[in-house]
């Protein structure tokens, strides 16, 4: 039964993985998990970066997300895509982390070094005015709206967003339309 479940995990992994990197099927749970994380590291980084601007806090958050993913890995439901599972766990962890951090001091990091890092220096100095404005706008949003905008910008379908957020597709559509309108207004104000 366990073997069958692992085979399903590996099948699912192959179907979901970022094909830029070849994934070698493995029956070891830790190895499979590491491959899933490797294939979706960009997604985890983007979520952490959207909610945490402070690099140290972001490092803590990435660690917390990966730990929660690990704890939840045994109960992964293969009826969902890996990306849906990661978005749910990562966003739930992030929103809780974000809310806790309003009232607490920085906790000791679980890991001594950064799990996700850049191969080279981040080139954020070249951001144009529009990107700065977009980030500023996202930063001002409430945590749930922020999750919604992030999923929209990642080009998830309305159905996927509704599944991840736990609201109706109509609600997703209404909220995204409203947020886009506000964004457009803000951008037009800058240009005038």
């Amino acid at each position: 039964m366990i073997f069958y479940s692992r085979l399903r995990i590996i099948d699912k992994l192959s179907a979901n993985a970022n094909l830029n990197e070849p994934i070698m099927p493995s029956t070891d749970k830790t190895d499979v998990f590491l491959q899933v994380i490797e294939a979706h590291k960009n997604m985890i980084y983007k979520i952490a970066n959207t909610y945490c601007k402070d690099p140290e806090d972001r490092m803590d958050l990435v660690q917390e997300i990966i730990l929660k993913l690990w704890q939840s890995f045994d109960s992964y439901n293969s009826a969902f895509k890996y990306s849906t599972w990661i978005y749910r766990v990562a966003l739930n962890t992030t929103i809780s982390h974000y809310r806790k951090n309003k009232t607490r001091n920085r906790k000791t990091a679980y890991f001594p070094e950064s799990i996700i890092s850049m191969a080279g220096p981040a080139d954020n100095t070249q951001m144009d005015q529009n990107t700065v404005q977009l980030n500023r706008f996202i930063d001002e949003l409430k945590p749930l709206d922020k999750a919604l905008v992030l999923l929209y910008l990642e080009e998830k379908t309305q159905k996927e967003i509704a599944d991840i957020m736990g609201i109706t597709e109509t609600n997703v559509s209404t909220k995204i339309a409203r947020i886009k309108n506000i964004l457009k207004q803000k951008f037009s104000q800058i240009k005038h």
């Binding site: 994380i37 490797e38 590291k41 960009n42 070094e113 799990i115 996700i116 890092s117 850049m118």
Partner: peptide, 12 residues
């Protein structure tokens, strides 16, 4: 950023 992200697999 996407292209330069690396995971420290050994540590993890």
């Amino acid at each position: 950023i996407d292209q330069s992200l690396q995971i420290n697999r050994r540590l993890l």
